[in-house]
Design a protein around this nucleic acid. Structure first.
Length: 421
RNA sequence: GUGGACGUAGCUUAAUGGUAAAGCUCCCGGUUGUGGUCCGGGCGAUCUGCGGGUUCGAAUCCCGUCGUCCACCCCA
């Protein structure tokens, strides 16, 4: 059979056998968020293109070459969200959430889209849970948010992670810092690649992202230039954040080259990676100017996003045992027409009692039905044949140890409870 | 966006110019109503992602295209 259609490049089918990882991470994420006082928010999967251009930044890779942008029938330019923050900030402003008690704490879970060349751990549609916290600029929340993110990773069972962290300063110091950076880069312009020379003028911070070999020595130093030129307030903020992290026992690693691919960040930026290297599985930072920039009141804010697909890849790589999804507690086997009718009644009864009931009513031989039960991994089989119909009884068989007993219909639930706690 | 490898039944692979194999899975059976192991049998590639070309003849060679993976880039 030739397959006519295949999934679009960079997308994935996540089959039932994979779902245990999704339930596991989703349940944990939700409980970590709820217990920390975050409320769930669901925003549209697509927004006006301009929202992303303005917030993420025109000269970022995301906006300049990775967005799924389309024109709808009304002629509006819309874009499938390439990240989670912009939409939440828009919602915060649009719904007047700045009138709610601050800080406002929300979390989300959903797909994001980037037109990028697929690779292991890199998809065009991927799942990105995250949180945003508005209205608090104290460095303690930077540390708390990072700690919360690590708590999630710890709860799902990941080990050996480290937070890479840096500060890119506040907006007031940005001009001076950028000038120092540009001065420094200009002095070394001959050793920089063409792209960097362009970025130096358009968006100097982005030069730090360059991986061009010839630029490396300069960039290495440039990171130091940034840190050295943080203004006093920014330095203080960053120092406090690190202090709090030390205090909370969160393991971090300073990375002066970390500037992140989105323009809206200020102060603290961070990414999480496995200690033995690999892709970053989550990241975030503070963005104190974004709310105002998008038309809201000046509001400090901070957030992070988790790359769930990569997180799950890492769970597998680290052989973390996640709970199996139980598809069925009992399996009903029926033999003959009358038994089949009785089976339907028993299925209802057990369903009402809260059991997950599996069956293969379309099959007739006991062998084939038990084979299915075995394949599903069901612990208990309930066998109903002609004899049981007459005796008003059923056979309860424990497939794990091959013991079985005949019980009267009216004792079924009671006897089942003994075998399944 | 750049460079490279790869693409055979649901899955993992074999066959490298001569009319597509195997294991697993799946289905059926191994005496009266009992699974997992074992044994026997069967379904399964409208033919080797798709389209074109070279050739008497292609899964095997060439081109294009789609997809996967790797490196770069970027990030989640």
């Amino acid at each position: 059979m030739g397959v006519k259609f295949q999934k679009p490049r960079g997308t994935q089918d996540i089959l039932p056998s994979e779902q245990k990882y999704w339930y596991w991470t989703e349940d944990n994420f939700r409980s970590v968020m709820l217990s920390a006082g975050f409320g769930r928010i669901i925003t549209p999967t697509f927004e006006n293109t301009d929202l992303f251009v303005r917030s993420v930044g025109e000269d970022t890779d995301i906006v300049s070459k990775e967005m799924y942008t389309f024109t709808d029938r009304g002629g509006n330019s819309l874009t499938l969200r390439p990240e989670g923050t912009a939409g939440v900030v828009r919602a915060y402003i649009e719904n007047g959430m700045h009138k709610e008690p601050q800080p406002v704490k929300v979390f989300y879970w959903g797909p994001v889209f980037r037109y990028d060349r697929p690779q292991a751990g890199r998809y065009r549609e991927f799942c990105q849970p995250g949180l945003e916290m508005f209205g608090e600029q104290d460095p303690i929340v930077d540390a708390q948010v990072i700690a919360l993110m690590m708590k999630f990773y710890r709860k799902i069972g990941l080990k050996d992670l480290v937070v890479k962290i840096n500060s890119i300063g506040d907006i007031k110091g940005r001009a001076k810092m950028q000038k120092a950076l540009v001065d420094f880069l200009s002095a070394h312009r001959r050793t920089l690649c063409a792209e960097c020379k362009r970025r130096m003028i358009q968006n100097p911070m982005r030069v730090l992202d360059c991986k061009e070999k010839k630029c490396q020595p300069v960039i290495e130093e440039a990171g130091g230039v940034l840190i050295d030129n943080l203004n006093t307030a920014s330095k203080e903020h960053f120092t406090k954040v690190l202090e709090y992290l030390d205090d909370m026992g969160v393991e971090y690693e300073l990375d002066h080259r970390l500037v992140r691919g989105l323009d809206y960040y200020t102060h603290t930026v961070f990414e999480v990676v496995a200690k033995n290297g690999g892709l970053s599985i989550g990241g975030g930072g503070r963005y104190d100017e974004l709310v105002k920039m998008l038309g809201g009141p000046a509001t400090p804010a901070i957030g992070f996003g988790v790359g769930l697909d990569r997180t799950i890849d890492l769970l597998k790589k680290q052989n973390v045992a996640v709970p199996e999804v139980v598809f069925s507690d009992v399996f009903i086997v029926q033999l003959g027409d009358e038994a089949k009718k009785k089976a339907i009644r028993v299925i209802d009864q057990l369903d009402e009692a809260g059991y997950r009931v599996a069956h293969a009513l379309g099959r007739s031989s006991i062998k084939s039905q038990l084979r299915v039960a075995n394949r599903l991994g069901t612990k208990i089989a309930i066998i109903i044949g002609e004899r049981e119909v007459h005796d008003k009884s059923v056979i309860i068989r424990d497939l794990s140890d091959s013991t079985q007993e005949s019980v009267l219909d009216r004792d079924l639930i009671k006897m089942l409870k003994k075998r399944i706690q």
